[in-house]
Design a protein around this nucleic acid. Structure first.
Length: 435
RNA sequence: UCCUCGGUAGCUCAGCUGGUUAGAGCACCUGACUGUUAAUCAGGGGGUCGCUGGUUCAAGCCCAGCCCGGGGAGCCA
């Protein structure tokens, strides 16, 4: 509250949207509506003018009005200043802290797995090459190929697509470990759920089977959601209202059945549904949309991977809660997953969340070296390159399990935002690495 | 990468079946006002209509290619 007669008019004029002020005054009961208290300004200093050069047609991009998230993404260096992104990134911090607390309180050790890696055999996705060679004039071998022996590490290296294999090494010594770090995928994925650089949490537990793994993951997700409810109430209330306002512009059938806060409470209060892939196929085959041919991809019987529309049906229509799908056919899963006694399925689990899809992917690992070698051969994965991984099976192996949790996908659920690009400060996506 | 919708002022958008000097609200500037809380009153400046090429007497509007963004799909976390 400024007394216009006591303040320098020129000074007041300089206060534009975005300016940084230092104010000294008296806190008093407010006469205005919509607020209880206000500061009666005695001293006012402008620490930082928000100086757009009007003669050049410049403007401070943030205006006192609602901006589209797409526009704010283009000015990611300034979007921290909006109340929406303030709330989102405070929650991101809280979730980071809560993640470490969850694992620490349960006796897990945090392992820093390498970001630059020489292995490219994991099959988790396309990798980014790391090199210091001159792209215009690389050293060549006699065969005319690029000679990576001349490269910085003396071999081809990439950015990691997963810390899992290294985490397994640690788990088979320390017992319970987890990683929490950046992960890179050079896939040309253009969706609201994928980033080229994202953060992943990968716990790995010795002597744990798939059931232990599911229990851990479910507890993990519920703990984080509960932590947000307990510690980020103001920001969640704001985001809840924001989402409700957004929904007003949508058609009735496109609106969600529950508000953000209702969804968070619901997840904490209800057990996740656990079913096998085989049971899921049966449900889908008998489902209404399948019989009425409403699915774009009709259920082709046992063996094929589920499409997004099938996962959404199970989670959003059939069970109406998070679903853990287990025991997938081995042919659609990674080489390190433990083979079941039926010889055709593996001890895999995916956790599917409403509106997000796969938020967790994990498995009980194949600890039996013969089975593991056989799978690697079938999938053309070099034993020489992964000798260090096989060594853990060779020398005193143990049953163990783990999973990967996509941090940004979790944040989508907790914040109610709908695009992963809006829950990471500086998103990296195909054709976009600004700031 | 595929399908689909879109790209008009700093932002959000309008622009009818192609037809004179391309509009609104907000923002910005000037002045007035001042118990104001995102939108007080009056006036003003501001647009190579994504880019390139084509059709036409005439293109913001039609056609082609490209670039960028949204939504959906695939890949996955």
């Amino acid at each position: 509250m400024v007394d216009f007669e006591k303040m320098d008019e020129e000074l007041l004029k300089r206060i534009t949207t975005g300016a940084c002020l230092s104010i000294t005054g008296t806190l008093a009961e407010s006469l205005g509506k919509g607020q209880k208290v206000e500061v009666l300004v005695e001293e006012l200093e402008i620490l930082g003018d928000s100086e757009a050069d009007v003669s050049k047609g410049e403007v401070y991009p943030l205006q006192p009005k609602a901006h589209s998230l797409e526009f704010l993404r283009e000015i990611a260096h300034l979007r921290f200043r909006t109340n929406t992104f303030g709330a989102v990134f405070r929650i991101r911090h809280a979730m980071t802290y809560a993640m470490h607390k969850f694992f620490h309180d349960r006796g897990f050790y945090n392992i820093h797995t390498p970001i630059i890696t020489a292995s490219d055999a994991e099959g988790a996705g396309e990798m980014f090459r790391v090199t210091t060679l001159d792209p215009k004039n690389p050293p060549l071998t006699e065969d005319g190929e690029v000679d990576f022996r001349e490269d910085f590490f003396g071999r081809q290296t990439n950015l990691t697509v997963s810390g899992q294999l290294e985490a397994e090494l640690a788990a088979l010594a320390l017992g319970k470990v987890y990683t929490f770090g950046p992960t890179f995928r050079a896939e040309n994925s253009n969706t609201a759920r994928h980033l080229a650089e994202f953060w992943m949490i990968e716990p790995e537990v010795a002597f744990a089977d798939l059931n232990d793994n599911m229990d851990l993951a479910e507890a993990n997700l519920k703990y984080l959601v509960q932590y947000a409810l307990d510690h980020c109430a103001d920001d969640l209330a704001f985001l809840n209202q924001r989402a409700l306002d957004e929904e007003k512009n949508k058609k009735k059938e496109e609106r969600s059945e529950m508000s953000l806060l209702e969804r968070l409470h619901f997840v904490v209060e209800h057990p996740f549904e656990r079913i096998t892939y085989t049971e899921a196929i049966e449900i889908l085959e008998k489902s209404k949309p399948n019989k009425e041919k409403k699915f774009q991809y009709p259920i082709q019987g046992w063996g094929t991977d589920l499409q997004s529309e099938h996962e959404r049906y199970l989670v959003e229509k059939h069970f109406k809660k998070p679903v853990i799908l287990t025991d997938y056919p081995k042919d659609i899963k990674a080489f390190y997953m433990r083979l079941n006694d039926d010889g055709k399925t593996v001890r895999a689990m995916d956790i599917l969340f409403p509106g997000i899809g796969e938020i967790v992917g994990g498995s009980q690992r194949e600890e039996r070296i013969d089975y593991l070698r056989k799978r690697m051969q079938e999938m053309h994965i070099s034993e020489q390159e992964l000798y260090w991984y096989l060594d853990t099976r060779k020398f005193g192996t143990a049953p163990h399990s783990g999973y990967g949790l996509g941090f940004e996908r979790l944040l989508l659920f907790v914040t109610g935002m709908t695009n992963v690009r809006d829950v990471i400060p500086f998103p990296r996506t195909p054709k976009s690495a600004d700031f």
